[in-house]
């Protein structure tokens, strides 16, 4: 399975004489789902367009099946790479089936008539993408997610070893994003086709892709399996930004809250984690409560009122809901501050 399908070698991409990124080298093995990640302006779309042959490269090669993409004719290339673009296409009166049918164009004759084989391939592509029930609907009547599925079906019908998608999940809501990603995952698994997609959904990319391409701000490309990249700490440098921290253990970004005060908490488990998150939002960080902490919060899991505040080892309030409890914690903090001040004054 691991024969390399597409290779980019020392690729320099950019416009005119201005290079955006250079010395890019990577491979796409057969049957893998690869996600291209990078913050805005790093040249993701430019790289995608250069690989598709839409845009001339400033140097280096894109080799597919040993041929340079930029020397192949449109017809030859159309049987190697199919694309799903961000271009918003408004084709008047086009039904889903017609769009998917246009995917067969590289194989049909002068008039574009499809034979029975072509029609079967189109039908299968629509079934695989779960859009067959909408085959007679106009593209303009579809939701964003359905339209994306129709375009993926078009790419499938084109029957190329490589499918390239430019941000297929942008503009979609979360369920639709997950659905599209899982669809692409299935296509890679069952058909042996390779898929390269650019995306901003890091969490989905980490869970679903075989390999990531990280386009760095400096214009270099780091590639590897998501897990290896986590081991190599590759993400921290990529999304370096104030207010964001990347948690290697969960593979998720976290908003970095500025913490001003601390509070001691005794407890563990799900309720504890939720409380910690809610407190972090208010700028309160948590320390582990030791036995000598007389002022503390206790979390008792699975009880009726799991969250309690202790002042001088005395339970003064218990709450069921975190929202109400947070208000109490804030009150308590004010109280403690005033208490300290009055101690100091007397």
């Amino acid at each position: 399975m691991n024969i390399s399908l597409l290779q980019i070698q020392n690729l320099i991409i950019g416009y005119g004489s201005k290079a955006i990124a250079d010395k890019l080298s990577a491979v796409i093995p057969s049957g893998e789902l690869i996600c291209l990640l990078g913050s805005n302006g790093t040249g993701k779309s430019t790289l995608i367009r250069s690989i598709c042959g839409f845009q001339p490269v400033l140097g280096g090669n894109v080799l597919i099946d040993k041929f340079d993409v930029h020397t192949l004719s449109e017809r030859e290339l159309s049987k190697q790479i199919s694309v799903v673009l961000t271009d918003r296409v408004v084709v008047p009166n086009a039904s889903v089936e017609e769009l998917v049918g246009y995917g067969r164009s590289p194989y049909t004759g002068m008039l574009g008539r499809m034979n029975t084989d072509d029609k079967a391939i189109v039908l299968n592509a629509m079934i695989e993408c779960g859009i067959v029930h909408k085959r007679d609907c106009l593209l303009t009547s579809l939701s964003d997610g359905e339209r994306q599925k129709a375009f993926i079906a078009k790419a499938l019908a084109q029957d190329t070893p490589l499918i390239i998608l430019d941000e297929p999940t942008a503009f979609l809501d979360l369920p639709a994003r997950v659905e599209i990603m899982q669809l692409l995952r299935n296509i890679a698994n069952t058909s042996g086709k390779s898929i390269l997609m650019s995306t901003h959904d890091l969490d989905l990319a980490l869970q679903l892709s075989d390999r990531l391409w990280l386009l760095q701000n400096g214009g270099s490309l780091i590639t590897g399996s998501p897990e290896d990249l986590l081991l190599r700490n590759a993400f921290q440098s990529m999304f370096q930004h104030k207010g964001i921290v990347f948690d290697n253990k969960t593979g998720l970004f976290k908003v970095k809250h500025t913490q001003s005060t601390q509070v001691a908490v005794k407890g563990h488990g799900f309720e504890y984690v939720l409380l910690r998150r809610a407190l972090a939002r208010k700028g309160i960080s948590i320390t582990k409560a030791y036995s000598y902490d007389s002022n503390r919060i206790e979390v008792i899991n699975d009880s009726k009122n799991p969250f309690s505040i202790y002042l001088d080892d005395e339970c003064i309030v218990s709450e069921e809901s975190i929202e109400a409890f947070i208000k109490q914690v804030l009150l308590m903090q004010k109280l403690l501050v005033e208490k300290k001040r009055s101690c100091f004054l007397s």
């Binding site: 839409f54 290339l77 159309s78 790479i81 673009l85 084709v91 246009y102 164009s105 574009g112």
Partner: peptide, 19 residues
């Protein structure tokens, strides 16, 4: 007609479909 069908999809899609 085949060229027109593809052109309606936009230049990039048309080119990617071999036009």
């Amino acid at each position: 007609s085949k060229s027109l069908n593809l052109m309606a999809l936009g230049d990039r899609y048309a080119s990617n479909l071999g036009l």
